[in-house]
Amino acid sequence: MFSDLDKAIIKEIQGDLPLVAQPYREIALRLGISEQTLLEKIKEFQEQGYIRRFGAALRHREMGLKANPMIIWQVPEARIEEVGNKLASFARVTHCYHRPMLPKLPYNVFSMIHAETKEECSKLAKEMAEIINIDNYDLLYSEKELKKTSMKYFMEG
């Protein structure tokens, strides 16, 4: 599916873009291809959806977003599609998934938000609950970040 060149390009661009005037030229030189070819390939990967986003990954805690709860919802099976889509439409929701329930965690729709304070999160969750009309929910706050990195693809060989 991916040529050796495709994989070599992905290995480079999933790293860190050098902060120089012509960063793509520098990467292209490492790959032994022209800057133009690299730019075209990146645009192609974007169009095909292999690149979900091109840009900066920020550390939200350092930006002042210190409250990062997973808001979990107990949604009747028949309403999952509707509720999931409604939750996804909130600008503050960064992730939203339907997932299986656990014995001690009877919630099946998982959403993530990031805010400056826990109070702000509680308020947001309450507003969301009213709009989606789901009473049973909980907020699991991240108390400590133990690891956060970007995935490195095609490193296995």
Binding site: I10, I42, R52, F54, A57, R59, E62
Partner: peptide
């Protein structure tokens, strides 16, 4: 340097690349 930017580059779509992902507790 301040640590606000973690990385500048491509964020790949793991599913499109054929990878499987999950959340674990």
């Amino acid at each position: 340097e301040q640590g606000i930017i973690r990385r500048l580059g491509a964020i790949m779509d793991s599913r499109k690349l054929g990878y499987k992902s999950t959340l674990c507790a």
